[in-house]
Every structure is written in C-alpha cells, then in structure tokens.
Design a protein around this nucleic acid. Structure first.
Length: 713
DNA sequence: TAGATTATAAACACCC
DNA sequence: TGGGTGTTTATAATCT
C-alpha cells in the first residue's frame, strides 16, 4: 500500500504537472519567489494571490473538462450500482476556497492596522475568492451531473472490459482535480500566512484552523453532508482507501483539527495545523503516509478494526485488500460509518458532559480548598456538605436577601454589601481552638472533617464568633431557636456523629436540653447525658465540659435548681434567660445596627435573617438540604419576622426586656405568669406576650402548662 | 477603655 | 472516703 500510495502520489504529481502545465509551474515559482523574498507587501501579495488562485481555479476547471472528454461512454462500477452517481473523491474541504471569514475580517478591523486601501484590497480579494468558490461549486455540480449522465449511458451500454480502465481514468481525472484544489488551498493558506506575518490576521492558538473554519463557516453541515454523499462514489482500490479517509476526515475535521496524516488529504490535514505546515513537500507527505499506513486506525494486531469486522489480516497489504473488498464504499460501509460518526458524537457529547461535571467538581473542590484561606481564623472542623451548602446558601442569600432587605428599606446598600461580604463562607462553623478543649476531631459517622482544618487548630482561645464562625446569634435565645428548628433533627444527627463543637453556649445547650425534656426539667446527670447523647463532641473530656455545665448552671440565674422528690432538678427561667443580654432594640437604627452587626458571635446575617431562616427551616447546618433555600418564602419570612420584631418591640417597648433581640421577641410565645423568687428579679411579674407562632410555640406552650414549682429557691 | 459575656480551670463545700 | 453535685473565684478572650 505504501508503494501504491507512493505511486499514487507520484502519479498525482505527474498528473498535476502534465495537467496543470506551465501555469502551475508559474504559480509555484511565483509563490516561491514570493516566499524567498520574505515579507510580501500586502497590496501586491493579496492581489497576486487572488489572481493566481483564480487562474488556478480556471486552469483546474479547464483541465477537468479536457480530461472529461474521453469519458463520454463510461460505465458505472459494479460495486456502486447502488450509487449510480460517479463522484469525485475529493474532500469538501478542498472544494472550499479559502475565504476570509467574517470573524477574521472583524478581527482585522478590530486590529485597526489596515489602511483603507488595504481594506479595499482585502475586500476585493474576499469577493474574488467567494466568486471563485461559487464557480468551483457550480463547476463541481456540473461535473457531477455530467458524470451521472455518463453513468446512465454506461449502464445501458454494459461494456465490462472497458469499465476498469475508464474508472481509472475517472480516478485520475478526479485526482487531478483534487490536486488542483489542494494547491489552491495551499495558496490560500500561504496567503493567510502572509497576512498573519503582516499582523493583519491573528489566529489564536485555540482557534480552529482557518481552512476548516472557513470550510465550516462557508458551508452548513447539511451541505457538507450532501457533498460528502456526492463525493463518495466508485473508485479504484486506492481511491477507496482515500475515500474512506476522506470520509472520516469530513466527519472529524469539521469538529476537530487533530487530523491524522491521510493519504489524499495530507495537504488538507497539514493545512489545518495552524497554517504552519502548509508548505510541505510531497516527499514528506509520502513519509507521513508511510507512517500512517503502519498506524492505520482500522488495522491493529493483525485484525481489521472496522466496526463489527475483526477479520484477521496477516499483514498490512492483506488488510488493505480486505478493506477494499469488504469495506468498500457501499451502503453498508456508509451506514457503518454514519453509525460510527454517531458513536463518536455521542462519545464527544458524553465527554463534554463529563468534562463539565469534572469542571464543576474541581471548581467546587477548589472553592472548598481555598475557603479556609479566605478566613483569617483557623477552621478546625468543617464538613464538606456544610461548606458546600453554605456556599450555595450564602451566594443565594447574598443576592436574594440583599434585594429583600433593600426592598424593606432596612439596610443600606453599604451595610448590605458588608453583610454580604461577611456572609462569605468565612462564617463557617468553627470548632473551638481552646487548648483545653477536646480538639481531637475524629471522623466519626458521616462527618467529613478535613485534615487541613484539623491542622489549623490553634492554641488561641477565640470568641465564639471566631471559633464557630457560624451564622448564629450570640444570643442564647437565638441559639436555642436554631436548635429548635424543625429540621434540627438533621443538625442533631450531624452533631451526634461529628465531633464538632456545637456553636452554642453552654447555657443555650443546657436550656435546650432542659426544654427538650418532657417535664422541662433535668437533673445534672440527665443534662450530662443529654450533652453526650446529642453531641459527639461532649463525649470527650467530660471533666472539662461537665465542670463548665455545673459552672453555668450555678452562674446563670436563668437556671433554677428545684428540689424534687427525686432530688434536685434544673429548670429554666426564660425571663432570666432573656435578660441575659440587655440590648436596646427598637425600630431605631439601633435595631438596624444590631441586625447588621448582630452580637458577639452573630453571623454576618442579621438576627432577623437568621430568625427568618429558622422560621423557614432554612438549614444552616444541615449537610444534605443546604443550598436550596426558598428565597421567596425567605423574603416573606424576613418581612414577617422583621415586622414581628417591630411589632413586638413597639408593643413591648416598656417590657422588662428591653434588650431582647429580634429572635427573642419572635420566639417568646408563652404567656407566663410565674412568681419569680430570684433575688435580682426585683421587677414585677413579667408578662411576656407575643403573637408569633414559632416552631417552638407548642413546646413553649407545653412549658407554660408545666406546673410552676413554687419551691424554687 | 470599661463592662459584659463566655469559656476554662480550679478550689471548695456538701451530700450520699 | 470517693465521687457526684453545687458554688465560687480567677483568668483569658472577645465583643459592645
């Protein structure tokens, strides 16, 4: 086959020389001179090239017409009886003269390096090339029609002995035409190279190569397919191989520039290599072809790799024979080729999808991996899902909430931007960095604790806002309210399994544990058990946190020790609990400021926002359901909650809890008249009322129904 | 800068 | 007597 191919190339060369004659030589010489002279002035080069190309096209047409004369009585090939149209084995790419695409023209115009004269020359050239293209296409169509007529005549004549000879003549003619077109394309490539050198055209590295680009842009895929169908026809054995390649080339080069060396399409392939290899000799083509024959994509390990074939071929010539005989251009092969095209397209589609998926994964992981860097505080334990969810959540909230709050005229744009910026993943929950704290995060259960975060453990004690970095108010009430989220079961599951310190104060946790109990009272041991049961974090260093629990129980007046029949139990004095952070909240800018800055370890999001999220079961800590906050409901919730805050604040302006945070106001649901015997409770009996029906309403109502122990202290 | 809040640690007392 | 419980104090960090 190598020899055959070489012979083919050689014969083609001779055909070209014989056919093209002096014109071709003149053309090549002109080009050589132009190249040898280095930079060719644009005005001269472009005009000359256009002129030469036109001349060459006409010459090719003349040649073909001349060669076509003896074929008046040609007969169709037997193999191609089903394809009565004898067609020229030429790539469609070769049929398309190089035309500067609109994009390239736009590029040129954008570069603004052309003088009006240059532009005019380019336009003229462009028009000439387009005209040339049209002429060629018309000529090609005419040729096809004539060949079809000839085939029909041959079918009636039925002279078999002359068939093969005539077919070879047809092939020779086709090859001549093909070579003409190839040279034309070369010239066009040269022209473009010249333009490139002169800086008139800049071809991006990733940009499809110009011939293919122009081809793809010059013809729509349907046209390409049609031409391809027309091109495929009866040929000699070598032509079959070439045609197979050209077939593949047609289907692949339009989408990919990774053209392999192909026999009759070498120039086309080379022309597609960024225009750098367009000036290659036939010798190199032959060598490339030689390599190609040994790396035939349809031949390997002595087996024909044609889809569904797998015929054993001892050597490459036998494979070629097999290929030509069994996989000639017929309906079956064409159909198989189409199927293969579809397979490739499907694979490419799948590949693109997988690439997108991979990109998304990588970007996601990249964001995650870079997140701790964005945070000045070391992050100890964070979970993948939480971070991910928080990212989605923060991104959506930044947009949605900003608009919502703006609509509510509650926060200025500046503060919103600050809030949004602070609502970055930096606000991810942090675990404590206290040296004495149980800082050995163990990946228990489903939690995914990053090693990097583990390594970021610092000995510096930090405030909750830094340690936990979680969008939760420092207000214990708010903390508990988060704990009381309807979807807190997911959070509970998380903290049950992940040895992550819960971002709540001891007081909040104790209160929550007490409130979760059926009788709203727990013994110290039951509180311990609740801690260890609910939080994996508190299954270590019991002495430390138990001491802290005891300390908090004793320290905070909100925790009331009640002597029961069973012994001492601890209850929660909600009033005292609410008093713990006296802050003025009103409809004044103070509220806004509080909403913005929140409290000690408040999130960047406002407390009202957190409340809204709580009310809407916006899973801040959930691992699975994050990232899908219903912003509409969130907007309503924010509006309602903020209104509730306002109402509550205004209605309770003289309340004994002036420092109640929005959450406090919103989630205080019970009407409780209870004698408080605390020493510092020098105020009147508190009457906390609210119309807000929070998820805690039932529990608080239950709590309200709980008998008040008059024996409290 | 002072005060408040929280965490941590420790000492101490009381009771079973 | 030891452990559990409860109280208090001290200290540090952080935020308002």
């Amino acid at each position: 086959m190598m020899q055959e191919s070489g012979t083919e190339t050689k014969s083609n060369d001779s055909v070209i020389q014989n056919g093209a004659g002096p014109d071709n030589h003149l053309l090549e010489c002109t080009l050589r001179e132009s190249r040898s002279n280095g930079e060719t002035p644009l005005e001269v080069g472009a005009v000359e090239l256009a002129h030469l190309q036109q001349q060459q096209a006409l010459q090719a047409a003349r040649q073909l017409l001349i060669n076509q004369q003896p074929f008046s009585g040609i007969k169709a090939n037997k193999r191609n009886d089903k394809h009565p149209s004898l067609q020229v084995p030429v790539s469609v790419a070769m049929m398309t003269p190089q035309v500067i695409t609109p994009q390239q023209m736009q590029q040129i115009l954008q570069q603004q390096v052309l003088t009006p004269q240059q532009l005019q020359v380019l336009l003229q050239q462009q028009q000439a090339l387009m005209l040339q293209q049209q002429q060629l296409q018309e000529f090609y169509k005419k040729q096809q029609e004539q060949l079809q007529l000839q085939l029909l005549q041959q079918q009636h004549a039925g002279k078999q002995p002359k068939e093969q000879q005539q077919q070879q003549q047809v092939a020779t003619q086709q090859l001549a035409f093909q070579q003409q077109l190839l040279q034309m394309q070369q010239l066009q490539q040269q022209h473009l190279l010249t333009l490139q050198r002169q800086g008139l055209l800049s071809i991006q590295p990733g940009q499809p190569t110009l011939p293919l680009q122009s081809l793809a842009q010059g013809m729509i895929p349907a046209e390409l397919q049609q031409l391809w169908k027309e091109v495929t026809g009866s040929h000699t054995a070598d032509d079959v191989v070439c045609n197979n390649h050209s077939t593949l080339d047609l289907s692949t080069t339009c989408v990919s520039s990774t053209a392999q060396p192909k026999t009759s399409l070498l120039l086309n392939s080379q022309a597609s290599t960024n225009g750098q290899a367009s000036v290659l000799t036939l010798k190199r083509e032959s060598s490339s072809h030689e390599e190609y024959t040994h790396n035939h994509p349809l031949y390997g390990h002595g087996v024909c790799k044609w889809p569904g074939c797998e015929t054993i071929c001892e050597d490459f010539p036998s494979f070629l024979k097999h290929l030509n005989s069994e996989h000639a251009l017929d309906d079956r092969s064409t159909a198989q080729c189409r199927v293969q095209m579809q397979v490739v397209q499907q694979l490419e589609l799948q590949l693109s999808k997988d690439k997108e998926r991979l990109q998304a994964m990588m970007s996601h992981l990249h964001v995650k991996s870079t997140e701790p860097k964005a945070s000045p505080q070391p992050q100890l334990c964070t979970t993948f899902g939480r971070e991910n969810g928080w990212i989605c959540y923060s991104q959506q909230l930044e947009e949605g909430i900003t608009g919502i709050l703006k609509g509510l005229n509650l926060v200025s744009s500046a503060t919103l931007s600050k809030t949004a910026s602070e609502a970055s993943p930096q606000s991810l929950p942090h675990t404590p960095t206290t040296p004495t704290a149980p800082l050995t995060p163990i990946t228990q259960g489903p939690s995914v604790i990053t090693t990097t975060s583990i390594h970021n453990v610092g000995p510096i004690r930090r405030r909750y806002s830094d340690k936990y970095n979680i969008p939760i108010s420092s207000d214990p009430m708010i903390s508990v309210d988060f704990l009381s989220l309807p979807d807190f079961a997911q959070n509970q599951e998380f903290y049950k399994n992940a040895e992550v310190r819960p971002p709540f104060t001891y007081a909040s946790l104790i209160r929550q544990g007490i409130l979760e109990s059926p009788e709203k009272q727990l013994t110290l041991n039951e509180i311990y058990n609740w801690f260890t049961r609910q939080f994996a974090y508190f299954r270590r260093n019991a002495a430390t946190w138990k001491n802290a629990v005891r300390h908090n129980l004793s320290l905070h007046k909100c925790f009331v020790r009640v002597e029961n029949v069973k012994g001492a139990v601890w209850t929660v004095d909600e009033m005292e609990f609410q008093k713990r952070r006296p802050q003025k909240i009103s409809g004044s800018p103070t509220l806004i400021k509080n909403i913005q800055t929140s409290h000690a370890y408040c999130s960047p999001l406002s407390a009202a926002l957190q409340a809204s999220m709580a009310e809407n079961s916006l899973p801040l800590y959930t691992t699975a359901s994050m990232g899908n906050p219903a912003l509409n409901s969130l907007a309503n919730a924010i509006r309602e909650d903020l209104n509730g805050v306002m109402e509550h604040t205004s209605s309770n302006g003289s309340d004994s809890s002036p420092g109640r945070s929005p959450m406090q106001g919103m989630h205080q649901v019970h009407v409780k008249e209870e004698p408080l015997d605390h020493d510092d409770n020098d105020g009147p009996l508190s009457l906390v009322t609210t119309a807000n029906h929070s998820p805690d309403f039932d529990r608080d109502r239950d709590y309200e129904d709980e008998p008040v122990n008059d024996d409290m202290e």
